[in-house]
Simulated assay, not measured.
Amino acid sequence: MTPYGSFTFFFIVAILLAPTIILGLQGKRFQTYNMFVTILALGLIFSSTLRGAIALILFTIWQVLLIKSYIAYRKKANGNSIFYLAVILSILPLALSKLMPYFSQVNLIGFLGISYLTFKGIQLIMETRDGLIKKDIPLSRLLYFILFFPTISSGPIDRYRRFEKNFQAEVTADQYKLLLYQGINKIFQGFLYKYIIGYSINHFFIAKLRFYAHSQFEHQLYYMYSYSLYLFFDFAGYSAFAIGVSYIMGIKSPENFNLPFISRNIKDFWNRWHMSLSFWFRDFVYMRFVFWIMKKKWIKNRNLVSNLGYILLFLLMGIWHGLEIQYILYGIYHALLMVIYNSFERFNKKHKWWPQNKFTHAVAIIITFHFVCFGFYIFSGQLFHKGV
């Protein structure tokens, strides 16, 4: 069963979380019960595919062994080679699952949510190496963090230390009332975004573009903007569902969207769009690449290092979506936008060519919106496959 894909799913989740709500409203702890709910929910989600369930179990065992082994190793030593090996081994199942469809009709490794679970595993290894995670993590809590069902399929990607803080917190009845209220609001927002606005755009406009467009150019233009809006409302709606259910379970999963279509530049856009993913790539790819290059002193020009970091980041982000041409070009497109804007930003600091006022702010939002929509047009594959 697809998470948040049917009203039946919401009905079952409501029944499963009824004891959580009762306990929360009484000011009693409910995290142990929520662990049990996560197991039941995962059984429901993977009930239609035995292969996927087996892949999830084997993947989880693999990640837990890696994380536990590296935490134990880190207490005794701090070798870079072991750290790199742990990261590579953590990424390996995801890499194989992305490559396998090109060699076999059956993907024995891939399953729903493998990307986001992998990101959590890599994060734990890297933060252990950085000294941010110093203590051993109880097995039950580690499993709960990795497999937390509300966010399993498409995020948001939580950070362990933030998750742990929520898990350990003593929540009073009044505090839980606020969490419950915020969670229900988020779920209703998700219904508005995904099942009303997103559905209407897709069903009443995108599916009927032939009635609105009088030329091929108009058809592609209308598709570009409508697809961009549909993608936002569909994905933001899903994220709202995941965050809402998380809140009801006492976990404040991070926000994933912050009005991305009013971004004033491409950097601002990536600070607003799929934020948990973009921040993950920023912290664990971009920042580490820049720090590593500057530490080795291979390149002394900070601007060049920064631009190379953007190219690496967005190429990886594009490839992560898939090896199809549209995803790779989408990554290259955003890498170029970031490099160009980075250069423009430095130029403007010296020459003050673009003043900061309400008019230029509005113009910047309009310009950014068009560039972002063209990026989504590339991402959709419509540029290479005409016809909706």
Rank of each mutant, 00 (worst) to 15 (best):
M1P: 00
S6Q: 06
S6I: 12
T8G: 12
L23K: 13
G24W: 02
G24Q: 03
F30W: 07
N34R: 03
M35S: 09
V37E: 06
L40C: 12
L44I: 14
I45P: 00
R51Y: 04
I54R: 09
L58C: 09
L66P: 02
K68N: 12
S69G: 14
A72E: 11
A72T: 08
F83A: 03
L92H: 06
P93C: 03
S104A: 08
V106W: 04
I125Y: 01
P138I: 02
L143A: 05
Y160E: 02
R161P: 00
L179K: 10
L180Q: 11
K194D: 05
I196T: 14
I197G: 13
A213F: 05
Q216I: 06
L221S: 04
Y223I: 04
Y225L: 14
F232R: 04
D234S: 12
Y238P: 10
Y247A: 08
M249P: 00
F257L: 06
L277V: 06
S278R: 00
F279Y: 13
D283G: 04
R288F: 05
R288N: 11
K295F: 12
K295S: 15
N301W: 01
L304F: 11
S306Y: 10
G309A: 13
F314C: 10
I319L: 15
L323Q: 10
G331V: 07
L337T: 01
Y341P: 02
F344C: 13
N348P: 07
T368E: 07
F371T: 09
L383I: 14
H385V: 05
G387K: 07
V388C: 05
